[in-house]
Amino acid sequence: MQIEQSQRNGVAVLTPTGRVNMVSAPKVKAAVDEAVAAGTPRVVIDLAQVEFIDSSGLGALVGGLKSARQADGDLRIAAAGDQVVTVLSLTNLDRILRPYASVEDAIDGW
């Protein structure tokens, strides 16, 4: 899996591509940890290019959220597709990972 990284207004934006599954989920978590360690604990994960997520991927998002919060930041998700939104809802994770419509919406007012 490829994960693009960029910064906008002091927020780290991570853009993974493909499926976030048991193989790629650790890479997503590592990318969040890297951003936090580099001094940008406010992280947006742009899910526009993610076609599928499994429970390992959900675990990576939760792990990333905890890493970011421990550094006084936060993690937000943006542009999630239908599968991701449905899975977040079925697992009740939409309570702590509210899907933002776009990266701009996630960053706006942060």
Partner: peptide, 18 residues
């Protein structure tokens, strides 16, 4: 389904929900 901040244990309950 585990606690919201759990990082594991959602696979089986997710399958069940579907």
């Amino acid at each position: 389904m585990p606690d919201e901040l759990a990082e594991r244990g959602r696979g089986m309950p997710l399958a069940h929900a579907i």
